[in-house]
């Protein structure tokens, strides 16, 4: 649901970059979204299309690189894949896996002209 606020935030950063770098059109926006970041890529695309209308990023391709979740088990010290915060450690079956990656929410690059 908060994808709209995030899309607006991306647009603000694009606007700042446009002022700093003097480009007039964005062709591609690359985001990094972790699997554990509570952001739905489909909702992000929908909101993005809505907020960029009639802006410098109108018509830009939104590329989303999804970062898989990985966690560290506090019980058996294994580094394990992590799909959500609810699942038990696949190695020892205990709960309390701490996320190590997958919470990313970054604007990586812009392709501009």
């Amino acid at each position: 649901m908060h994808e709209l606020a995030l899309a607006e935030s991306v647009l603000q950063m694009v606007d700042e970059a446009a002022r700093a770098n003097g480009f007039r059109r964005v062709r591609k926006i690359v985001l990094e979204i972790g699997q554990l970041a509570a952001v739905d890529p489909a909702a992000m695309r929908f909101c993005f299309d809505a907020v960029v209308r009639e802006t410098v990023a109108d018509g830009a391709v939104l590329e989303i690189e999804e970062i898989p979740g990985r966690g560290w088990c506090v019980h058996c010290a294994a580094v394990v894949p992590m799909d959500d915060f609810v699942a038990a450690c696949p190695q020892c079956g205990s709960f309390g896996v701490q996320s190590r990656s997958g919470r990313e929410l970054r604007l990586k690059t812009l392709e501009v002209e």
């Binding site: 950063m13 970059a17 480009f23 970054r106 604007l107 990586k108 690059t109 392709e111 501009v112 002209e113």
Partner: peptide, 8 residues
Amino acid sequence: PREIRIER
């Protein structure tokens, strides 16, 4: 076209 790294 050129690429700008933002990384924010």
